[in-house]
Amino acid sequence: MITKTRKSLLASLMLVGTLFIGTSVYAAEAAKEVAKDIVLKDDAKCTRCHDEADAPELLRIGKTKHGTRADSRTPTCTNCHGDSKAHADHSGATTPPKTDLNFGKKSNAPASARNEACLTCHQKDSSRHLWAGSIHETRDVACTSCHNIHGGHDKVRSKKTQPEVCFTCHKQQRIEANKPSHHPMLEGKVACSDCHNSHGSAGPKLMKRDSVVDTCYTCHMEKRGPFVHNHEPVNEDCGNCHNPHGTTAENLLKVRVPFLCHQCHTPHGGFIPQLRGAQVTAPTAAGNAKGTTNVTQGRACMNCHTQVHGSNNPAATNPTPQFMLR
């Protein structure tokens, strides 16, 4: 006969056993759960290790277009990183071998190989049709040099944070963007990609349109003309006079007027630039207006030659507008 004590002990053992079995069953169930896809179709092979406990930042790809499972085109990990059998099958405490293709700073894969993974899908994008042979491509800039795929927020695709990415390489523009006369890049209203197509272009300097002037006209169409009286450097290249990234001189001019103009135009006779209150020879009321502070201060040459981008005034009466006076 089983004593009460033994009964109690047996019951306890049964209970513990039940718990143990239950736990084991649960563990087995849990193990099966760990093996499930977390973000992308067929990602279980990778996310059994790279899960939310190990590398949550990698899972943020789920927040992006690359994480949309309902789109049949959406790649899985191995589409970009390769099958990586050696990496996936590794066990033990030692560092696993790298994936077939990795994209980080220490990647030893050539930029062209890394880019090929992206271009498999994205070569179709119309904005990338001229990527082959473009300056970023020939300079071995990888897609992941600018784009953050796993992070959930790709800084370069937001106007507010894009300049910071471009400044990584383009330091001169970082200085210029902080100068008082500037396009509102740091204010988050104009991005580098509003003027440049970093993926390739038929225009110079990766201009978004086919030329510098055509790109500038998209926002400054009043300068397009043609005019009755054209100013030819304006038609050739806005960069002849302007630095669109930022200047200390007003209106994004590379050099203050009159010095800017004196690079092409003969002066109005002999004079030295001078300022009100610092003139060796006091000017007279009826004096030569072209030889005094009028050509140095204010708008300088443009105090009179206002229509520097061109004038559509057809008046053929003196003084005619071909001197951009009206």
Binding site: N288, N303, C304, T306, P319, L325
Partner: peptide, 8 residues
Amino acid sequence: SGKGYDCA
């Protein structure tokens, strides 16, 4: 902007 002239 501006406007000016020195009489010729």
